[in-house]
């Protein structure tokens, strides 16, 4: 089972060290030390807010791009995948099983920005055999958070 401290941090990176300590009956010093160790050894890579794009007034575009690659002797897909992942527009990059090899999640300010990344950077790269781009229309849930979530159901204040 995943460490309870890590589990809480995965749910919310905003908990303060004293709050985490309180919830887990640890000392704040213990929490600080463990988080520092995880940050150092790369267990924790960073902290982010999960933002509902509909509320920001910006019209960011997210593309999900299926990429087929020519595998290379020795390294398979690693070298190309790492190269693609370096682009700022690429927020996630996964090697996939099935009908294609890489799934890139690409963000841009508008459609054109994503399109030009695909046509100019991605498709022209040596070893990229084909691409198929899908655009996000609406988000219902992201990283465990439901958008337009239901209200908490009512409960009796006192029950046997």
């Amino acid at each position: 089972m995943i460490d309870p401290l890590l589990q809480l941090l995965r749910r919310s990176g905003r908990f303060s060290e004293s709050e985490l300590a309180e919830r887990l009956s640890l000392t704040p010093e213990e929490v600080t030390a463990r988080i520092a160790a995880w940050e150092k050894d790369g267990t924790i890579l960073g902290y982010q807010a999960v933002v509902n794009p509909g509320m920001t007034g910006q019209s960011d575009v997210t593309g999900f791009i299926e990429v087929r690659l020519a595998p290379e002797r020795g390294g398979g897909f690693d070298r190309l995948a790492k190269r693609l992942a370096k682009f700022d527009q690429v927020v996630s990059c996964y090697l996939m099983s099935g009908g294609y090899d890489l799934l890139l999640v690409v963000e841009g300010g508008d459609l054109m920005e994503v399109a030009s990344f695909v046509t100019e950077k991605l498709s022209t790269m040596e070893g990229v055999l084909s691409t198929a781009t899908h655009f996000r229309l609406k988000t219902y849930k992201e990283n465990g958070f439901a958008f337009d979530g239901d209200e908490d159901p009512e409960r009796l204040p006192v029950a046997p």
């Binding site: 409960r155 009796l156 204040p157 006192v158 029950a159 046997p160």
Partner: peptide
Amino acid sequence: FELVLGRDDVISLGVGE
């Protein structure tokens, strides 16, 4: 229960579920 129902903003530790 009746007493609690008459009040707003109660934090309840009184549930059994």
